[in-house]
Simulated scan of single mutants.
Amino acid sequence: MQEVQSEKKRRNVWIPVGIVFVVIALIVSWIAYLAVLAPTVQTDAEYFYVHSNDTYDDVMQRIKEENIVRNYTLFEYMAKAMDLPENINPGRYRLDSEMNNRRLIGNLRGGYQEAVKFRFQNVRLKENFAGLLGQHFEADSLEFLQVLQDEKTAEKFGFTSDNFFSMFIPNTYEIYWNTNPQKIMARFHTEYMNFWNVDRKAKADALGMTTQEVSTLAAIVKGEAMHTDEMPAIAGLYINRLKRGMLLQADPTVIFANNDFTIRRVLNRHLTIDNPYNTYRFKGLPPGPIMMPSIVAIDAVLNYKKHDYIYMCAKDDFSGYHLFATTMAEHLVNARKFQRALDERNIKR
């Protein structure tokens, strides 16, 4: 009887002890779940950026200050457990509300960043392009501008500082955010080489032009044309003038030479500037493109429309289309119509 009572006492002691162990196990499991598997990201930010010169402490401080994760203490514990202090990588890392500590730390540790989808078109100047690059990548616009203006960089890729802008083919590029400017230039050059395939090069050769010269003419065509369907005709006109040794007399080049992009009406005083981009004074193509040429404009030059026109003037209905002419007399009639239309709208400059 006494032995039975002793056994009952032992059971009564072990039951609460067992409950305590179960509770502890549940707590430990819950903490482990929070530390490893539970969603941790609480910020609305789409990306977290680790700069190339950031230390582990820099990154952890920003994660804490910007409230990136729900429980910083657990995140810090997991970061150390997963050896993040010795393995952190710069980059642009996507954040989402379902992301847990293990995945976020794993991305930072393995450098599993998301590439920037960089798209550009209608870029006028190197300064504009540098600013656009600086907005999308780690290097700032000044670093990019220095590269774009660097003669040695241009020569490395087979260009001059004047025609370097023709290397950039407007398209969508996937490039890692922390890629340095020189490597980004190399990426653009690869696209340029792919763009100028055998067919396009053969057409450029048939025109007696280098690929850079085609891009230079394409930039003028793009500057003149408001409608892509008119580009081949405009390209044909300028090719006719080049073949005859005539001045191109392209208004967009005069605007570029004067560095005044507010000009809506090119006047005689604009034509006097002594600048190699002023095609009213200097024969042939200018030293380089007056803007970044589009693919459509480049192909319009390569597949130009054959005709006899050597003059054109904007239509007086301001539709953006042009009237073409083969003689100066016909052209002057068209020009007077357009000038009267400008006067009627009080467009003086």
Rank of each mutant, 00 (worst) to 15 (best):
M1I: 09
M1A: 13
K8P: 00
K9N: 09
N12E: 08
V13W: 00
V20I: 14
I24E: 10
L26V: 15
L26Y: 07
W30F: 14
L37V: 12
L37W: 14
T43G: 04
A45Q: 15
Y49E: 06
Y56P: 14
Y56T: 11
V59I: 15
M60L: 13
I63R: 07
E65K: 15
I68M: 05
L74T: 05
E76I: 07
A79H: 06
K80W: 09
P85H: 09
P85A: 08
N87V: 03
N87Y: 04
R92D: 04
Y93C: 04
R94Q: 14
R94W: 06
R94N: 07
R102F: 09
Y112I: 09
N122L: 05
V123G: 11
R124W: 10
A130L: 05
L132Y: 04
H136I: 02
H136N: 15
H136W: 08
L142S: 12
F144R: 10
Q146E: 14
Q149H: 11
E151T: 09
K152R: 08
F159H: 00
N163E: 03
F165H: 01
F168T: 02
T172N: 13
N180Q: 14
Q182W: 00
F188P: 00
A202V: 11
A202H: 13
L207R: 11
M209T: 08
T210M: 05
T216E: 01
L217M: 14
A219P: 03
K222I: 02
M226D: 13
D229Q: 12
P232N: 06
A233V: 11
L237W: 07
Y238G: 04
L242V: 04
L242E: 03
G245W: 00
M246Q: 06
M246I: 08
L248K: 10
A250L: 00
A257T: 12
F261N: 04
R265C: 07
H270R: 08
L271M: 03
I273F: 05
I273Q: 07
Y277F: 09
T279H: 08
T279L: 09
Y280M: 02
F282C: 01
P287M: 12
G288W: 02
P289F: 07
I290D: 03
M291Y: 00
I295T: 05
L302I: 04
N303P: 11
K305T: 11
Y309W: 11
Y311S: 04
K315D: 03
D317Q: 02
G320H: 11
H322N: 12
A325E: 11
H331R: 13
H331I: 12
V333R: 12
F338Q: 10
L342A: 03
E344I: 02
R345C: 01
K348A: 02
